[in-house]
Design a protein around this nucleic acid. Sequence first.
DNA 1: CAGTATCCTCGAGGATACTG
DNA 2: CAGTATCCTCGAGGATACTG
Lengths: 140, 140
Amino acid sequence: MAQALAEIGDAWSLLILRETFYGRQRFSDIVEHTGAQKTVVSARLKQLVNAGILVRETYSEFPTRHNYVPTQKGAELGAVVMALTAWGTKWLDNDHQDDIAFTHHECGHDVALAAYCPNCDTTVQADQVRGGPRRTTTGR
Amino acid sequence: MAQALAEIGDAWSLLILRETFYGRQRFSDIVEHTGAQKTVVSARLKQLVNAGILVRETYSEFPTRHNYVPTQKGAELGAVVMALTAWGTKWLDNDHQDDIAFTHHECGHDVALAAYCPNCDTTVQADQVRGGPRRTTTGR
DNA sequence: CAGTATCCTCGAGGATACTG
DNA sequence: CAGTATCCTCGAGGATACTG
């Protein structure tokens, strides 16, 4: 997890990534919607492209226009965004202006994150989930 | 989500929180296992307690000993930790020394995060999930 | 629009030393 | 052990101006 956090960088990266999920994939859109400085967006975008989380696609040469599109690796950070959004919605008295909705493509309904136990083949309530160090053969 | 990120603070907070999930709830344990400076841990702990994510429990007066225990609000950040860990495991070639395992209390098996559609009453594959702005601003 | 180049400030966090 | 107090450095990011 520490490495995941290092790879993502910081909050700006996640905010930028969310914009690309929305379909806000152009530089100016991202700057406008995240409220970050252009220099910051520029730096994060580079970092995210470098990490293989986004790809830069040039869709117009004259004038120069790029889209920053999530890769598979980037798209799978959607779970992190979902978890964060769900938590914020539940625990923070925020306005939901900028919230992202994740919907089931087939039926159009909102999906939620849930813990799933492959053994019992059921979703598991949070209070039935225990966290602990993963035991490896290499030990401590 | 922006507010959630603000409330959490930064990567250190999440790393500290994970330790408390483990059961590493004492100051020195946290310092040792996160590798953060004592000043940093002290600051983050204060911030997390203040945000209602952790509570400080004194379990010994002489000598002074405290446990930092996740509240319900804090425990529910487990989903964020799970999402981050799962992503790191899949996409980063890391060593899993410090990984946290989340298990189904009833059967002891590992649980995974999944998107769940209440409408269809099924878990939904990632590629069947679409993200979009919640407020109907017509998308573009 | 889509950035890069500079300058400058300010605060986070490392190191170290101290207290209860 | 469980922190707090200081000092100091260094780099992130705001402001502003520039290029293609």
